[in-house]
Design a protein around this nucleic acid. Structure first.
Lengths: 334, 334
DNA sequence: TTGTAAGCGTTATCAA
DNA sequence: TTGATAACGCTTACAA
């Protein structure tokens, strides 16, 4: 391992001088020695020791990305939304010259460890961390950026989207196209702000149009027999003709189950998703969905992070990104 | 920040004693003091400073995951195979009590930085790093685990799958079902060992059966008009009836393009993918594909990593995992 | 413009 | 079973 001292000895200066050069503190070092030192560092293949830096400066160029780990078997990154967001975040953070640690966490102590152990400069919470936000903020005085949080705590920096509006857009589109008998497919609602708001927007527009969503039209993510349930919903006196899902991933499941049951999309059943993942252009028929701009979300997240790192007194901001309906072919038109 | 010293003072011992307790060096500390120290640490919310540890012990419990960054706009984690593998790896590594850094790298100096700067205990290379392996091994004396590498360097620890066999399986399945006029869709072959071997296995079996793959039946990933090309291939005197793709992701593109052009799958055109991503069960029709066990791959990768960390003298191993053909509905049967 | 000295939180080593 | 001391590689603060 090459250290500052190695370079210093070879250059016949003190290691402080080398340190200054390596940190671009030009102006504090003469042009000549600076060049010489740079050259030697290059030759020796010097790489600064980040641990030592973090220790001495009590700060690091490290960001922690925290993903909620629900259970041992499920892998958060299998969710395309998550992996896409994380990937974009990684890109942005690298661009800022920071490094990224990836932490799957399942309880408070794991979060604490992730933040404190490595002296991270800031952290991004991807997923749901609403319960522990207050305590997190008390215990850690570094920028904590939450995503898609609907915490009631106001002093929180969050990047989200207009979930409610997304639900509205979906409902409106269904109504415009003559769909009045609708259903919902998604995770259990109450413990998830995002889902709840999407659903509320959806239901509210329907209600205003005099359309109601009977309880039996709510399908839970772990319904035992999705195909059978769909079949039931789509038959009888007053068949369901449209389903709103809270994620494109869920819509793909509907596609599959519907196909198996001989339910045609959009002929017999229309579907609207949420997210607009890459795959949604590719499925057949193309999925009509509420689009969120994941790249922008990641970029904004990183911007907030940097801003808060540079200015620890920066006020809490809750940024809400727009959503839009992307019209493809999964809804039967009037 | 709570330090060993804080605990030591409160407990009336030296920080060395506390250090020993925190590192589970029981047997070197009396039962009584050990308990007392643990309790105080708990109360104070002590979290060990990993930077200091890394510095003092010249080793860290850190693993670097390196992803090849091709260009600024493309995001490696948008690829479901990558994100799935990374996710599983994260799970495994956490289980071993290690932390994970995620690095997008595009040249040698970035790799070097990733490995040296944080004193990582080991690294996993995801993607293609064949060119620089020799130099990497010379410059770094920590376990480096490669995945899907076909480097000619023999002293390399690698986890891969039997790509060649995968190609064979696909070809056999096509032949068994009477498909003799076939095509290939994938990235340019030469600069990618994985793709090349899949294709070779495929072509070899075909050749042995007296079937050849004319050059015009090779479609490049960035073909300008996939739909048009497909249409052309599937029409005329001797239409192509089957396409082998080197990734499920590519197969989904075929699905989409075929649908737009009115080409039915598998009626007019059969498709075989590679990977068996979750999505492949969900698309319509279900994708017949060569399955690789990504979870197992990640588990093996982590095992190798740990083995090599514990025993730096461990011999280089090239582990080749099996593949199998998963039969679904995307191939028209004889 | 450069250098000295101290210290960051921890572990290694040796001594008691 | 415990502690004192010296690192680890770097930065901060101050002095020259």
């Amino acid at each position: 391992m090459v250290t500052l001292k190695d370079i210093a000895e070879k250059a016949g200066v003190s290691s402080m001088t080398v340190s200054r050069v390596m940190n671009g503190k030009t102006g504090a070092v003469s042009q000549k020695t600076s060049e010489r030192i740079k050259k030697i560092a290059q030759e020796l293949g010097y790489v600064p020791n980040s641990s030592a830096r973090a220790l001495a400066s009590r700060s690091s160029r490290l960001i922690a990305a925290l993903l909620q780990e629900y259970d041992e078997d499920s892998n958060p990154l299998e969710d395309s939304y998550m992996s896409c967001f994380l990937g974009e975040l990684a890109l942005q953070i690298k661009k800022e010259g920071y490094d990224l640690m990836l932490h799957y966490v399942k309880d408070y102590s794991e979060i604490t460890y992730s933040l404190k152990s490595w002296n991270v400069a800031g952290a991004v919470f991807i997923g749901m961390f609403d319960e522990s936000i207050r305590k997190l903020q008390e215990d850690n005085h570094i920028p904590l950026i939450f995503t898609d949080s609907y915490s009631s705590i106001r002093s929180i920096t969050n990047v989200g989207i207009d979930d409610y509006r997304g639900g509205e857009l979906a409902a409106k589109y269904f109504l415009e196209n003559g769909h009045k008998n609708l259903a919902f497919y998604g995770p259990e609602v109450l413990d998830n702000g995002v889902v709840m708001h999407r659903l509320r927007g959806f239901v509210t527009v329907l209600r205003e149009a005099g359309v109601s969503l009977p309880p039996e039209n709510f399908m839970d993510l772990d319904v035992k027999d999705l195909g059978g349930t769909l079949k039931k919903l789509c038959s009888g006196e007053n068949p369901v003709t449209g389903i709103f899902t809270t994620a494109d991933n869920c819509a793909y499941q509907i596609y599959s189950a519907a196909y198996r049951m001989g339910i045609r999309i959009p002929g017999d059943l229309s579907v609207i998703g949420f997210d607009d993942l890459n795959m949604s252009r590719l499925v057949t028929p193309g999925l009509t969905t509420v689009r969120q701009d994941i790249k922008k979300k990641a970029a904004v997240t990183c911007d907030l992070l940097m801003k808060n790192i540079k200015d620890p007194g920066a006020p809490a901001e809750n940024i809400v990104l727009n959503v839009e309906l992307v019209e493809r072919e999964s809804v039967r038109k009037r």
